[in-house]
Design a protein around this nucleic acid. Structure first.
Ligand SMILES: [Mn+2]
Ligand SMILES: [Mn+2]
Ligand SMILES: [Zn+2]
Ligand SMILES: [Zn+2]
Lengths: 125, 125
DNA sequence: AACACAATTGCGAATTGTTCGCAAGTGTTA
DNA sequence: TAACACTTGCGAACAATTCGCAATTGTGTT
């Protein structure tokens, strides 16, 4: 959390209440979360500011975005990981990321985003 | 293309003109494409129907969706592959998919979606 | 070939998601 | 404490996506 704040500052952004609120909520709700739900949790922050903050966090690679069904979800990227999600019930597990697309000819500064979907054992009966 | 149609039918859907138009346009424009651009190419098809078709194609796993920056892009999934995209200029390369998340404890029927982003050599100067 | 019926479409309106413009407020640095 | 640029909140604007429903069409059956 403190580390996150420092990264923001280092990226050249001011440390404001709305930004702290977003970061803290992201870090509390450990699961990927939609803008709508995130904003529900921090109503003090204006919706536009939630969008603005998420956008700059994404550009700074402090959060990742993924699309699950019709939802766009945001998740802190401090610890590199991915998710596998049950399409039926939404049950989700984290997957440690040990990928290395490090050197890809023709590209530098590579980031990646991976999402797995499936049916959990419970739902599969 | 013919194979795609067959898959749709096998999935229990009727083979209609709008659906064929969408499939053909996806197959012609080999790159991931946004709803807006796809619709531009097949204006004969109503926009709502484009959405409806893409949604059912996605549920049938005939197309994949990925988010690049602020764009939601659709791409045929007939040949398993991913993309690496330059954030500066949009240049993109296809990556053959040889991943196998096949057996993941607790989940079955697993699908995955991977996107790489970076800066292409040209843009990196 | 005509029929029957459920599935699908087009249309416009409704809903939801996201961005904008600008005046007022705030963090940082000196 | 005084700048001053960066941010915020607010509403309106704009864009994306879905909905409801009457009209149309694909497909399997006579
Ligand atoms: Mn990874
Ligand atoms: Mn793959
Ligand atoms: Zn489940
Ligand atoms: Zn480039």
């Amino acid at each position: 959390m403190e580390k996150l704040k420092k990264q923001l500052v280092k990226a050249g952004y001011k440390m404001t209440a709305p930004r702290i609120a977003v970061l803290e909520e992201l870090s509390v709700s450990r699961h990927p979360i939609s803008v709508r739900n995130l904003h529900k949790k921090i109503k003090a922050v204006n919706r536009a500011s939630v969008y603005r903050t998420l956008n700059l966090l994404e550009e700074s690679h402090l959060v990742n975005v993924e699309v699950i069904g019709k939802e766009k979800l945001y998740c802190l990227a401090n610890v590199p990981h991915h998710h596998i999600i049950c399409k039926q019930c939404g049950y989700m597990e984290e997957i440690k990321c040990n990928h290395n697309f490090g050197y890809f000819k023709n590209f530098s500064n590579i980031h990646h985003q991976l999402t797995l979907t499936g049916v959990c054992n419970k739902c599969a009966k």
